[in-house]
């Protein structure tokens, strides 16, 4: 397990978590064992692209088509935080 998420890494949701839309909070949330995690819209978009097929670079490119700008370091830091909680698994082969 590395501390930095490589751009060639392929992030995917861990098997024990799932996402759903929380109408009360009007936010996408991630459900894990004994935890509910609310995501802001940018975070939800990133997580939705974590399909285990796309690389981090692919995700940044796709976000670039949707947003006025994309801060690569913020995407990587976000994924690192999720990976450190084991909600996201990153493979790099």
């Amino acid at each position: 397990m590395t501390d930095t998420v490589p751009r060639t890494g392929r992030p995917a949701l861990a098997r024990f978590v799932k996402t759903r839309y929380d109408k009360a909070r009007e936010r996408q949330v991630l459900l894990g064992p004994e935890t509910v995690v609310t995501l802001n819209p940018t975070g939800a978009d990133i997580l939705a692209l974590c399909d285990g097929q796309r690389t981090v670079g692919d995700i940044v490119d796709e976000l670039g088509r949707r947003y006025d700008r994309v801060v690569d370091d913020e995407v990587i830091a976000f994924l690192e935080r999720l990976a450190s909680r084991r909600w996201v698994v990153i493979t790099d082969e």
Partner: peptide, 16 residues
Amino acid sequence: MESLSIWETPEFEEFA
């Protein structure tokens, strides 16, 4: 021309 969303720093907040 499709309008682009405004980038915000991606964040999460964790809460039986």
